[in-house]
């Protein structure tokens, strides 16, 4: 009776930002990105792609609670880069990988 609506899992509520970032107060070049209405699908590919970046010292994600439909991606980089730069780079790289995958499939 008090179960949340099913669409709550993937529809970002009005007035909420899809992505918000928060800089770490203690460590330089570290930040957390809160991504609303995403789960392991996006969290894990982002994390693994970030690990390929040599300037990324730490990249991890967590799904804080199964009924809180958001993930938190934490990134710590060297001074050669920044969390936002690494984050954007990871998305760009994944996007290109998917483009390549799509093109190689569409041949058939």
């Amino acid at each position: 009776m008090n179960a949340p609506d099913r669409y709550e899992r993937f529809v970002v509520p009005e007035g909420t930002k899809k992505v918000s970032s928060e800089r770490d107060t203690k460590i330089v070049n570290a930040a957390s990105f809160t991504i609303e209405r995403e789960d392991h699908t996006v969290g894990n590919i982002l994390r693994m792609q970030l690990h390929r970046d040599p300037n990324v010292l730490f990249a991890g994600y967590k799904l804080p609670h199964p009924l809180q439909y958001k993930i938190i991606v934490r990134i710590h980089t060297t001074s050669q880069s920044s969390p936002t730069q690494a984050y954007t780079q990871a998305i760009d790289d994944l996007d290109r990988e998917l483009d390549l995958l799509k093109r190689s499939l569409e041949v058939f």
Binding site: V19, S20, E38, T41, V42, Q85, T88, L105
Partner: peptide, 29 residues
């Protein structure tokens, strides 16, 4: 299904891109 899945992941990634207004360490960059 595979082609559509690739397209959906692309759309999802696009949706999680940072907007210019919310880059905390732009100054640093």
């Amino acid at each position: 299904m595979v082609i559509n899945a690739i397209e959906i992941i692309k759309q999802k990634l696009d949706a999680v891109r940072l907007q210019d207004s919310e880059e905390p360490d732009m100054g640093e960059l």
